[in-house]
């Protein structure tokens, strides 16, 4: 198809210390596409992402980057091909936006620090794409949540990797900024052919923005495929434990989940009205 980098996992068993989180996970990330890993809290979705990013060594199984065991490759070599934005990266206090984004150039630099025209170009491009040029000399700790997330994505972009993994990139953002970030990631995918994998809480956002979903439940993958095949009433019940109606999103023509819950007929308002009417 293309000569793009492939990222696959074969029969992963993942554990923190002795505590086993997942077993027998196999996934193949579609090159040039957006993949979302979805599931309930503590289902192992972040753990899978960390394993794909070689931040967690699997107990069994292998992660293959371009056909090679990712743990056998030098970490700097991996860092030129695959970027990861962890869930809670830390901005050192007082650091400026440009200095933080410039740290994404680490894998391209030699031990004795050398800043080249390529580095400057990459940082400028990342800042242009994320619209952070106006913030260039601001301290990161003075930014709003949405701005800060754009800066972190810019740092990962400055790394200039073909594959970009993000752990819950929209957490702590309001709805408008969540959409901002997801639109930005979509731009990167469409315009620059980046392969993107993110962990996302919001199933409706995942269904709208991803080409491919990996649905997880209690440490194992229960389904993977395009959103239209994964976001169905029986499957949502299976991996989220939620009764729902699935309808077509009139805006994006993707499936959208409407949770049923226990107060489906309109919640407290109609219940109260009914109580008043009978009394």
């Amino acid at each position: 198809m293309t000569d793009q980098l492939t990222l696959t996992a074969e029969n992963l068993t993942l554990a923190y210390d002795q505590h086993e989180v997942s077993r027998d996970l196999s996934v193949a990330i579609s090159p040039g596409k957006i993949t979302a890993i979805v599931g309930a809290n503590a289902c192992g979705k972040s753990t899978l992402l960390r394993a794909l990013a070689r931040l967690l060594a699997p107990k069994h199984g292998t992660v293959l980057l371009d056909g090679e065991d990712i743990h056998r490759l030098a970490t700097k070599v991996v860092a030129k091909k695959l970027g990861i934005l962890p869930q809670t990266p830390i901005a050192p206090s007082g650091i400026t936006v440009t200095d933080l984004i410039a740290r994404g150039r680490y894998p391209h630099q030699r031990l004795v620090r050398q800043w080249t025209a390529d580095d400057e170009q990459a940082v400028a491009a990342a800042m242009t794409a994320t619209q952070t040029l106006d913030l260039s000399v601001r301290a990161v700790d003075t930014l709003s949540g949405g701005q800060r997330q754009r800066v972190w994505i810019a740092m990962a972009l400055a790394q200039q990797t073909e594959i970009l993994l993000l752990d819950e990139p929209t957490t702590f953002l309001d709805l408008a900024h969540q959409i901002d970030v997801l639109d930005l990631l979509t731009d990167l995918n469409l315009q620059y052919g980046r392969t993107i994998v993110f962990v996302l809480h919001d199933l409706n956002h995942a269904a709208r923005y991803a080409h491919h979903l990996i649905a997880m439940h209690e440490g194992s993958i229960c389904a993977q495929g395009p959103p239209a095949e994964i976001v169905t009433e029986p499957l949502v019940h299976q991996f989220l434990g939620l009764d729902s109606r699935v309808i077509n999103d009139p805006v994006s023509n993707t499936p959208i989940v409407l949770p049923i819950g226990r107060h489906a007929s309109g919640g407290a308002r109609t219940t109260a009205a009914a109580a008043n009417g009978s009394g």
Binding site: D3, D99, S136, T161
Partner: peptide, 21 residues
């Protein structure tokens, strides 16, 4: 689609980065 597609920046953006650094 080419391998590691570059993001490109215009000279003004590069100047902003140079000034900030």
């Amino acid at each position: 689609i080419t391998r590691t597609p570059p993001l490109t920046a215009d000279p003004e953006a590069c100047a902003v980065v140079a000034a900030a650094r």
